[in-house]
Design a protein around this nucleic acid. Structure first.
Lengths: 147, 147
DNA sequence: TCGTTATTTTGAGTAATTCAAAACAAGCAC
DNA sequence: GTGCTTGTTTTGAATTACTCAAAATAACGA
């Protein structure tokens, strides 16, 4: 089966097309991001290390920063949590964060057009984007803390 | 003029009514927060230090944490910035952050009811609150980077 | 005024990241 | 294929923004 090979090639292509050089750690990082919807740098590092021994945490931070800048991944920073990286990019989706366990899920916010993204008064700001974070309890935490 | 005195008394009352003991550093911190709409702990510390010599940064953090928990102030954590504290509390307002200089302004979000706060699919989460952060250019930065 | 308990100081430690210099390697030119 | 240039990564250190804990101190009800 050439599946793994093909995957690596596809990842490499994504990286190349973003205008970045293809390196082992970069392919590994992007691979990890494909498998985890929202993941922090530290966990990316721990997942990459066995795949590409010798990789440093700093490199992972650098790679994630490069990917973010190149638009390959998106970085979100929910309060009380280190930055999370996600592969889903290019659409304007939002997030729910569990106040119990910190779990994060994507939210396709607001049916139809986005009324919420037009503040009633922008205070003279020229608004570029809006970011919505919902806070609540995930199913598991709802079960754990009943009523 | 008893203005300053009266102010201090009012601040002390707010603190007491929140169920907290009134201390010099606490009154000073709350006073600083009354004058700055969005301010970070470090700047609170620098503003308080001359008013109450000997105050420690840790104390300021502790005070802000106590105030936040008591509902006297609200803590926000915009990406790429340390936590900011604001006195305006009890209403569900949102924020614009300048992508140029980091300036923050309040936004009274969404005219009428809040359609934006109802995600189309909540992924099973029991949603408690929604937080909207707008990103854009403040008037000053618009002028500095024309077109 | 006293005593209890909250608060602050003092001193140290941590998490998440950033910076910088040197070693290394991708990928284009030849 | 080989070499070169320039982008990446390693290595080692530093920084920012807090948090933790023990001892000293001070608020405020009794």
């Amino acid at each position: 089966m050439t599946t793994e090979r093909a995957d690596a090639t596809a990842l490499a292509d994504s990286i190349r097309h973003a205008g970045l050089r293809v390196t082992e750690p970069r392919v590994a990082v992007l691979g990890v991001l494909e498998n985890e919807s929202h993941i922090e740098a530290e966990r990316v590092f721990r997942a990459v290390l066995p795949l590409v021994p010798g990789t440093s945490v700093q490199a992972v931070h650098g790679i994630l920063a490069a990917f973010t800048q190149a638009g390959l991944v998106r970085r979100i920073e929910p309060a009380h949590s280190p930055a999370l990286y996600e592969r889903r990019v290019g659409d304007n989706h939002h997030h729910v964060v569990c106040t119990g366990c910190g779990a994060v899920e994507d939210i396709d916010c607001t049916v139809g057009h986005s009324p919420c993204l037009t503040p009633s008064s922008s205070g003279g700001f020229q608004i570029q984007t809006a970011e919505v974070t919902f806070w609540g309890l995930c199913p598991a935490c709802q079960a754990a803390v009943p009523a």
